[in-house]
Design a binder for these strands. Sequence first.
DNA 1: GATGAATGAGCTTTCATTCAT
DNA 2: CATGAATGAAAGCTCATTCAT
Lengths: 190, 190, 190, 190
Amino acid sequence: MTGAQERPLRADAARNRAKVLDAATEVFTTRGIGVPTEEIARAAGVGVGTLFRHFPTKEALLEAVMVRRLETIAERTAELAAGAEPAEAFYGCFRLIVEQSAGKNEFARALAAAGVDVQSSLQAPSAVIRTRLTGLLDRAQRAGAVRPDLTVPELIALLVGTGATLEQLGPDPAARERVLDVLFTGLRPR
Amino acid sequence: MTGAQERPLRADAARNRAKVLDAATEVFTTRGIGVPTEEIARAAGVGVGTLFRHFPTKEALLEAVMVRRLETIAERTAELAAGAEPAEAFYGCFRLIVEQSAGKNEFARALAAAGVDVQSSLQAPSAVIRTRLTGLLDRAQRAGAVRPDLTVPELIALLVGTGATLEQLGPDPAARERVLDVLFTGLRPR
Amino acid sequence: MTGAQERPLRADAARNRAKVLDAATEVFTTRGIGVPTEEIARAAGVGVGTLFRHFPTKEALLEAVMVRRLETIAERTAELAAGAEPAEAFYGCFRLIVEQSAGKNEFARALAAAGVDVQSSLQAPSAVIRTRLTGLLDRAQRAGAVRPDLTVPELIALLVGTGATLEQLGPDPAARERVLDVLFTGLRPR
Amino acid sequence: MTGAQERPLRADAARNRAKVLDAATEVFTTRGIGVPTEEIARAAGVGVGTLFRHFPTKEALLEAVMVRRLETIAERTAELAAGAEPAEAFYGCFRLIVEQSAGKNEFARALAAAGVDVQSSLQAPSAVIRTRLTGLLDRAQRAGAVRPDLTVPELIALLVGTGATLEQLGPDPAARERVLDVLFTGLRPR
DNA sequence: GATGAATGAGCTTTCATTCAT
DNA sequence: CATGAATGAAAGCTCATTCAT
């Protein structure tokens, strides 16, 4: 139920869909949202028509990229959450999400600005993540690894913001570590 | 240091420039960067021609909006920094900046994407801010109010990210306070 | 003379050709010429590929639709012309054609605009009709049922125009009758 | 009240609007509705942008062309209707309209197909014409020059259809005269 | 100086037609 | 042979920027 298609989708069609999605993710992330659809098609090695057959709108493409990202995050958090003690699971997932989420904000904003019903299409995967985060936070708080007054919306906002922080900061590992340490220290019960 | 020099600029021209700048700030912030230039002109109550006379490019307008924001921030931080003990000055400025900076990221990104030499045009005001931040951080660290390993670039990244966090979080004051408390706790020496 | 010769055409292929032709007639008539080819294929219950195998061009399909219409008209006029006295035959055929020809003009125009050699492809069936009309007119004129100065091209133009009149008029039977009465009165010798 | 603009419209703007309208009338009539908007702009000697500034949609342009045609017809019928005895006025206007209306049907159909609210935008001028036609028909019927059972909708349908007849017929004056004579004879009381 | 009409490159999207499956 | 995914030329429309009024 994570991504069931209507019909199985022909082999080559699926391949092209994936190529487009990959190219879009790459291009949107590196060069921003303003890039012409045609460029993305070219990067994917398909014609514009093909792109539009799979994603009837540029918006729809953006949406699909986000959905896939969220799904990826959901999967990885599931693995992490499975076999680990509460604190490790929580902070591990935090790390995972903020590393993955570079550029995510821009997408969300663009979608929102375009008036997409972000709720409906992203709700499924983001609900999964939200549920997972709720569980992680709860367990960690009960284990005394996270301050008890923090709520899920605040956690999500912090994830988004920390993503932005890291994006702004650049690649220096020591600096990134220091910034995460600030966050993690602040998240622990005093 | 308020911005305009070159030539004194006629009274009505200056008034128009200000009207455009105000309108642009308002419109860009509320409706995003994609809004047509003409809309901004209309919001300012002038013709597009006038707008382009003052800001030869849409980019230039965006830049000007950012510059003014930074200048505003610089001024206010100056006031705060002046008569206050180190800890209060530092945390007060942090608050001030993150509250002010809603939407700032989008601007910065847009400018960067457009290939503007963000450094050169924003350098003056951002250098002022950077200097001020350096001073604030330094004083606060020496007073034992901020962990000593934090550097200025990390502080700036945290300011940007915390702005994003608050933007994501919405207006609930309790939640905002909690989030800031996480940050401030994390920033203190253990 | 039903259309298909060249090669016998397999049974299912012939069935598909007919399905496409029926669907095209229906769709073109009700929704205009602008409908995407794919829609017609869907209405016919076949893939686009099949459609294009039978009609190498959208134009060709339009043409085929018109040809079949003309053929239908030709057949019916034949029946009417066979066993009836001149006046009845003439006015009966006039009625028949103008009732049948709703929307036909649009096709003809579309074909002409597309630069199709309307003459060559439609010549066979329209020659049949023209011959029949010539006979009908001639007999009716000799019987004193139609004014003697009217020529075949004028008759055809009047048929086309009366079709348009009825199309414009809508379904009210009394009004349609009145309009036809105007025409028929005008067609009789003074 | 026949065509009042919001603001007087600058001299050059009015000139361009007229040029576009002329070109559109010409091009639509001779080459059909399918012609690219850009072609019309070129024919008018302006850029596409200018065209779209005046007519925000291709549909709107079609509409405007029709409106102007109807207005022209309305004016001319007014002149004719003014100083003439009933029969002459009626048959004169009939002639005038069917000569003018070449290609009009195609426009009307295109508009209808596009789902334009034909009523609202064309109502004003077409109401004028309808009123005029009502008056002409009424006077002619009272003068015994037209069969008394004919109604206005039927008259309009006949005008449309006769336009189509003439268009189909081509330019031969004798043939056109003969066709009109059929109509006019049919329209007289028997 | 101010205005807003004109410009046209560029963007998203459609659709007749081809061709791998 | 049938299918429908792929193609890409072309269409309609937008918008930053220029320039006559």
